[in-house]
């Protein structure tokens, strides 16, 4: 074995070591990149994202009908704070609202008005029947009161109580959010905007 062979052997060892170092570095780099991609990219359906956005930004129409309306106002106040669930912006115009909280008894004379306001709200829209009266007529089983607002507009969530407290109404809003999210991306959600 000559001096030259020895030198070539040493050189090859150096090259192998370098290659191993580079491989480690590249592996390390790959792991880091893979992690950063994992942290920043999410795959889902578009409908799900839209539904998620809708559920967290419900805009109720200002539509107080009776004593339930007092509890509805309390729900928006700081003590119960419906803003935590993104449903605190009561709009005076139905054109800017997508949630109708029917808070109180609906008289026969009020039913056409309620229907018109519901029709004026843009799609998609939801209805919460708040309290016994708007759910089924309540104690007012008589000539003047509509026996449940579901005879006039389609209802998504019924909140029982006479009147239901603000926390019960918030629970109703949460239930509605669950409904919106479970409907998101399905045929049901498509029907709402059709």
């Amino acid at each position: 074995m000559g001096l030259i062979d020895e030198a070539v052997g040493a050189f090859e060892t150096e090259v192998d070591n370098l290659k191993l170092n580079v491989k480690d570095a590249v592996d390390q780099l790959g792991d880091d990149l893979a992690g950063s991609i994992y942290d920043t990219i999410l795959t889902t359906k578009l409908g799900k994202v839209v539904g998620w956005a809708q559920k967290n930004a419900l805009w109720p129409a200002t539509f107080g009908l009776a004593c339930c309306a007092i509890e509805m106002m309390a729900m928006a106040n700081s003590r119960w704070d419906a803003a935590r669930f993104g449903a605190e912006v009561f709009r005076a115009s139905p054109r800017q609202a997508d949630l109708m909280i029917v808070s109180g008894r609906v008289s026969q004379k009020m039913a056409p008005v309620l229907k018109q306001i519901y029709d004026q709200m843009p799609d998609p829209k939801w209805v919460i029947a708040m309290g016994a009266c708007s759910s089924c007529g309540g104690i007012f089983n008589n000539y003047a009161i509509v026996q449940g607002v579901d005879r006039v507009v389609p209802v998504d969530v019924y909140v029982p109580g006479c009147p239901p407290g603000p926390e019960a109404l918030i629970y109703g809003v949460i239930k509605l959010q669950e409904k919106i999210l479970s409907e998101a991306g399905t045929q049901e959600a498509r029907k709402r905007v059709a």
């Binding site: 026969q108 039913a111 018109q116």
Partner: peptide, 23 residues
Amino acid sequence: GFKGHPLRKDYPINKRQPMIGPL
């Protein structure tokens, strides 16, 4: 369009009249 006078004692307590309006 409402028929009758509902606080009369002989107005039937269960009588319901058809709803009005665009519905």
